[in-house]
Simulated scan of single mutants.
Amino acid sequence: MTIQSILGAIVIGAVIGAIGRLLIPGRQAIGWILTIVVGIVAALVGTLIAQAIGVENTSGPDWIELVLQVVLAVVGVGLVAGLRRSRSRGGKI
């Protein structure tokens, strides 16, 4: 990996994570650093899924890949926020 690809992953992860976080209603109990990490993971996994189903390289923008990444970010942010919320309450519902 080059420094450019690492910086690109961070920037894309930040954008994907922020979009995922904005699509969830209400406040999330996670910080921006964790949001970026979730976004990076969602971007990487979304790209792997797009490659597996053969839609990673299309003419024009890769909308299917982007939608996969954002959906994974929404799920990831929701899961992490839910886990952090339940831990802060001591596991009580």
Rank of each mutant, 00 (worst) to 15 (best):
S86F: 07
A14S: 15
G26T: 04
S86L: 13
L22Y: 09
T47S: 15
G26H: 03
A18Y: 08
A81G: 03
I24K: 05
V67P: 02
L7S: 11
L83H: 00
G13R: 06
G82F: 07
S88A: 14
G54F: 01
L79W: 12
T2P: 09
L83G: 09
I40C: 11
L72R: 06
Q51M: 12
A9Q: 13
A42F: 07
V41C: 09
I53A: 04
P61M: 10
L83N: 05
V67W: 11
V70E: 04
L34C: 07
L72H: 00
G26P: 01
S88V: 02
A42T: 00
L83F: 02
G78A: 01
R85V: 03
A81I: 02
R85T: 14
G46M: 06
V70R: 07
V38F: 01
G91A: 08
I16W: 07
E65N: 15
I49H: 09
I93N: 07
G82E: 04
A50C: 12
W63Y: 14
I3P: 11
N57F: 09
V75C: 07
L83Y: 07
R21L: 00
M1D: 11
V77K: 00
R89H: 02
G20Q: 03
V74W: 02
G17S: 06
G39V: 09
I19M: 10
R27N: 03
I6T: 13
G20N: 06
G82K: 03
G90Y: 02
